[in-house]
Amino acid sequence: MTSLAPSMPLSAIAADSVCPLHVSGLSKQFASSSTAVFSDVSFRVAKGQSVALIGANGAGKSTLLRCCVRLIEPDAGKIILDGVALSGKSGRDLRQARNRVGFVFQKHCLVPRLSVLSNVLHGNLAHRCGPRNWSQGLARQVDRQQALDCLEQVGLADLADKRCDQLSGGQSQRVAIARALMQQPKILFADEPTASLDPQSGEDIMELFATLGRAHGLTLFFVSHHIEHALRYADRILGLRERQLLLDSSSGSENLQSLRGFYA
């Protein structure tokens, strides 16, 4: 396993616009717990890189991922997203700072009674507010076409008018990915995107992430319990253990045995 290099000074991080995500000294502790979820976590993600975050159950992987975009508020540390410091931002300023960030959740977070196309259009709410981005019947033609293009990229254009509560788990996750693409993201976060899927659907989703990442030059940062996925679909693997980031290694220098050893 690769040991961590010393963290980069924040001034140097801020000046480096190549890296879309910089985290420095990030810490989080919930009020209900006597110990921190993680402490003093620092790393940087390069443009176009695919990064997997691994760790045992309860290690804080999902919390860390959410803290990186302040969906969960960290207790300490600094985050620079696409060259913009998130610290101190709130409301409209915070939403604007992360409007080029796509986030795919394990639970899909679709509106079941609405159509597939309407759910994809919701990705446009990152850039424009109002009812025209809530329903396909109200949407501008240019936005409808963009949403259809996003569905085409995930292989579901033929299901545009179907209600989301009639979809399989794999189809629902593809709609969630299309919705994220609608934001025209520069970086795509995914929190255990295959956890609720059967093995074949999970493989299909990870292949889709890899294909879209290459096609759009996206930076990918995903949490996974599957070390095989980390090895196959990530350029780099980060590992949380004992409330610290104790693994930062290229996937090419790791294997199943070494990653299993990280959990020991």
Results as ranks from 00 to 15, higher is better:
248 D>Y: 05
15 A>D: 06
167 L>D: 12
253 S>C: 05
233 Y>L: 14
231 L>G: 00
206 M>I: 11
184 Q>H: 12
10 L>V: 13
175 V>S: 14
60 G>A: 08
130 G>Q: 07
124 N>L: 07
122 H>G: 03
187 I>P: 13
158 D>V: 10
32 S>K: 11
138 L>V: 02
69 V>S: 05
142 V>I: 08
1 M>K: 01
113 R>C: 03
123 G>Q: 09
130 G>E: 07
44 R>C: 15
51 V>A: 13
170 G>L: 05
204 D>S: 13
134 W>C: 11
34 S>R: 15
96 Q>H: 13
156 L>V: 00
213 G>R: 15
5 A>L: 10
56 A>L: 14
190 A>Q: 05
13 I>K: 11
118 S>V: 08
227 I>Q: 03
246 L>C: 10
121 L>R: 05
140 R>K: 11
137 G>I: 09
232 R>L: 10
214 R>P: 09
27 S>L: 08
176 A>M: 01
261 G>Y: 05
256 L>T: 10
194 T>H: 10
76 A>V: 01
110 L>G: 08
54 I>L: 10
182 M>I: 04
96 Q>D: 11
73 E>K: 09
64 L>C: 08
122 H>C: 12
121 L>D: 04
52 A>M: 04
82 D>V: 02
87 S>I: 00
93 D>V: 04
232 R>P: 04
133 N>V: 12
27 S>M: 06
64 L>M: 12
254 E>S: 03
43 F>M: 08
15 A>T: 05
15 A>H: 06
212 L>S: 14
176 A>L: 03
252 G>W: 06
211 T>M: 14
102 G>Q: 08
31 A>H: 02
48 G>I: 01
182 M>N: 00
210 A>V: 11
218 L>V: 14
190 A>H: 09
193 P>H: 09
159 L>T: 01
197 L>F: 11
217 G>K: 13
14 A>Y: 13
244 Q>E: 03
172 S>H: 12
102 G>D: 06
253 S>E: 15
144 R>P: 00
174 R>F: 06
156 L>C: 02
213 G>S: 15
